[in-house]
Design a protein around this nucleic acid. Sequence first.
DNA 1: CGACGATGTAAGCACGCGCTTACATAACGA
DNA 2: TCGTTATGTAAGCGCGTGCTTACATCGTCG
Lengths: 192, 192
Amino acid sequence: MTEARRRDANATKAALLRAAGELFTERGFDRATVRDIADLAGVNQSLLFRYFGSKEELFHAVLAIQTRELVAESPAEKVLARTLARMLDEKRDPSSQSSWYAALRSSGHDSAADAIRKQLGEDYIRALISLTDAEDADLRADLVLAWVLGLGMLRSVVGKKPLVDADPQRVAKHVLSAAATLLERLDTDPAS
Amino acid sequence: MTEARRRDANATKAALLRAAGELFTERGFDRATVRDIADLAGVNQSLLFRYFGSKEELFHAVLAIQTRELVAESPAEKVLARTLARMLDEKRDPSSQSSWYAALRSSGHDSAADAIRKQLGEDYIRALISLTDAEDADLRADLVLAWVLGLGMLRSVVGKKPLVDADPQRVAKHVLSAAATLLERLDTDPAS
DNA sequence: CGACGATGTAAGCACGCGCTTACATAACGA
DNA sequence: TCGTTATGTAAGCGCGTGCTTACATCGTCG
């Protein structure tokens, strides 16, 4: 376990994951080619297959990492505010912006990615459901999840103005107060 | 202009547009192949190129048609309710479900599709902006547009339950009342 | 009829893609 | 020092894709 080795499998894997996260998010699964990912990572293409098996498995690895990062966060009332803060934080480098949107873009025919994104959805949904006593709590949670996804797509894929340039606090305030109509115990304070 | 001709260019074009709309919406631009579109339309593949020039131009034609259908609708206060009703109406056949989501999925590198979807966005945004006197009306409109897109994606791409099976009236009621937090003149009656 | 444009068909080309293979070299223990 | 394994490199294979070409057949009108 020495550091700064000239040949370091872990560093190679990390570089690939980082590059893959960036390109998948930016272009979607289909248009991010393995050649471009390897080039961006500064790594030989065949190593991608040695360490991850296939393009799809690499995608799953990226998704799993970002899922873990997003889910392990704070009490239910704060989850939405946290997610918004993370999404709207412009200081994030591109490689850590969520590949959720890439997962959404690459449609059904990929069962494992389906499983992962449904799992992530479930974790979110569970948190949101706990914020209301309404009988249709699960539907209300779906509606709020849809909003978060729509915001991310409109920002990252379309680059819609004025949304991309808007004050994060203001965006969060609007979304939280409107969502509170559906989830009465939601904490509407934009502060993370 | 006789009818039911054995050779009819207009019928061929219409069949291609219909099939393309269905497959683009269902699979996204990249995964809908020209062979599958031609097969679904029951038409020889090369006719697609004779009548539309390229896959991209066919995509633009589909987008233009659906844009026209969606935009020319009723007063501003009713636009959101109408859109929701249309999106949630399960009786629609697949070919008329919007390819907006396909446009969203196929990222930036397509300038004409960009232009069209931004144009559609603009028409929508204009209608929504007129529903509030707030100084950040344009931002609020973006937020509502994002919600509509997110709902469509979550329904058509992920097939998320309980959202797909939910009572359209109830979904519309929730969304409209929450959106009314941002757009005070919005008509919150789900009826179309 | 017969000729010509409009419409439909079948075959295949060129390219980029995901992935594989065969090999070179660094790292490290015996 | 040597042999083995982990890591990196270069080349290319097979396939599906968007698109083109060469040709057959229909409809129409002089």
